[in-house]
Amino acid sequence: MATEAAVTAQEALDQDNIIVARDVHKWFGNFHALRGVTTTVGRGEVVVVIGPSGSGKSTFIRTVNRLEQHQQGDIFVDGVEMTDDVRNIDAIRREVGMVFQSFNLFPHLTVMRNITLAPTKVRKTPMDEAEASALKLLERVGIPEQAEKYPGELSGGQQQRVAIARALAMNPKIMLFDEPTSALDPEMIKEVLEVMKELAASHQMTIVAITHELGFAREVADRIVMFDEGQIVEDLPPDEFFNNPRHERVRRFLSQIL
């Protein structure tokens, strides 16, 4: 099959890269949201994505698990090309966890059921096994005592930690964070960042996080990628990014958010 051959070639080319994007374009109607994004993310890498609103950063990470479809260019995730093939999409979504700005926990299910739903339904993990690992995950994010509550009974910070546990329950190779702390009250940001730092430090998975928590970026990121007008403006390790950016646009943006 042609697709398989392409995948093999791609794997040979980018063995160390878990995400490969080549000249990706995306339009919403007439709006050109992504204007030729080319980048790679290595296995185990922690990449922080920043940029002004409407810059395409969120659209880009949503193309990685195909919540958005790109119209031009190629995206390979773990060696699988993102096409309309439903089996590919489902296969990739199992390997890619996502955490949203608005948590998006399922309000009609308990915390425990939120976490065990996908493992039991998609991976066919037995319920008792799924519940045991859900409890471990809740311990890891620091709220094992909330297992039987409903999302509406938790604080924003707790909800976001449950959302992280829910994504981790599928043992993803990649975690995508789409502004995980921007909907939180200030006193709850830290607890979520701590969990994310712990994840980054464990080097178990690749992390792509959109966040404007620059302290977090400085501390854990391998690279900081800045988007503007649907393109990547800058892509540098944190030190250089903050101290020695190549583009004036970066400095202007940093001065706006600091």
């Binding site: 608005s102 399922f106 009609h108 996908a118 339904k121 599928m170």
Partner: peptide, 27 residues
């Protein structure tokens, strides 16, 4: 329903019919 509900379910790898029957319809 908030569109994020279906997105979160799809992002977890649930197939379309389960997104409907387990997440959207009950709510």
């Amino acid at each position: 329903l908030h569109p994020g509900q279906a997105e979160a379910a799809r992002a977890l790898g649930l197939p379309g019919w389960q997104v409907t029957t387990l997440i959207q319809l009950p709510q």
